[in-house]
């Protein structure tokens, strides 16, 4: 194992780092909100493991809603109901009997706005392992360091681990949040417009990070930015009004889309 693989090994539950991250199978997923009965309609997607899948589409088309289905964050919203199935490594995510907490430890999530907790940098990253029952300091130190290294933040913060996370720049905060998600050793990483509140340089760093991480995680990223989708993703799904219009390899979508609507959206002719 080289250094990189060791890091990944330390940051995933898989004993063999070369083992591929699991894929996700979405079948007939529909979702309604009280005010929005067609938030998602009959979504079918087969998301391969160990790759980056981008979800694009106009504002309000249901991208975030779809993403929140993968870790059942929609459960927290009142009056939200869904049907269909999402299979992650043999587990039916949407089954009411599914242990949501365990699921969320397998499916990490990064939000649009960096949301570090009001505590020190160290505590932010150690948070997930801690609530998972890890108590020993040495163990925590290891997890924190490897997660931060993997999120390419270690060198910048290793001397200020006890400072409040709020002092970091927005770009650093976002990488910290990614490190925080990694620290619980998930299999899937969901990212909802992770770079939309960042400056171009920080955005670039996040994109590099995504590229690095895809070896070990299945990544689903929502983005508004066409170039970004083209740069980081292997496959792209175009959503409109709660439906999947087109889902294919990123090359195909961006060079030769099958649907007219996709082309219009990508070329900016949309609405």
């Amino acid at each position: 194992m080289d250094h990189r693989e060791a890091l990944i090994a330390a940051s995933t539950n898989r004993s063999n780092p070369s083992e591929a991250a699991p894929g996700i199978e979405v079948k007939g997923l529909s979702l309604t909100y009280p005010e929005e009965p067609n938030a998602l309609t009959d979504i079918n997607l087969s998301i391969p493991g160990g790759e980056v899948t981008a979800v694009i589409g106009p504002s309000g088309c249901g991208k975030s809603t779809l993403l929140r289905c993968f870790n059942r964050m929609n459960d927290m919203l009142e009056g939200c109901s869904y049907s269909g199935s999402i299979i992650l490594n043999g587990l039916d995510v949407l089954d009411p009997a599914t242990d949501v907490t365990a699921l969320r430890r397998r499916v990490g999530m990064v939000f649009q706005q960096p949301n570090p907790f009001p505590m020190s940098i160290y505590e932010n990253v150690a948070y997930g392992p801690r609530i998972g029952g890890v108590r020993r300091r040495r163990e925590l130190d290891e997890v924190v360091e490897s997660a931060l290294r993997l999120a390419a933040l270690w060198d910048e913060v290793k001397d200020q681990m006890n400072r409040n996370a709020i002092v970091l720049s927005l770009g650093q905060q976002q990488r910290l949040v990614i490190a925080r998600a990694i620290a619980v050793r998930p299999e899937v990483l969901l990212m909802d417009e992770p770079a939309s509140s960042l400056d171009p340089i920080s955005t670039l760093r996040i994109e590099e990070l995504i590229y690095e991480l895809k070896q070990s995680y299945t990544i689903v990223i929502v983005t508004h930015n066409m170039q970004q989708a083209a740069r980081v993703s292997d496959r792209t799904a175009f959503l409109n009004q709660g439906r999947v219009v087109e889902y294919d390899s990123t090359d195909k979508i961006f060079t030769n889309p099958a649907e007219r609507a996709t082309e219009d959206y990508i070329t900016g002719r949309y609405g």
Partner: peptide, 9 residues
């Protein structure tokens, strides 16, 4: 913030 914590389980 709370969502971030809940997403971590």
């Amino acid at each position: 913030g709370a969502a971030g914590s809940i997403a971590l389980g």
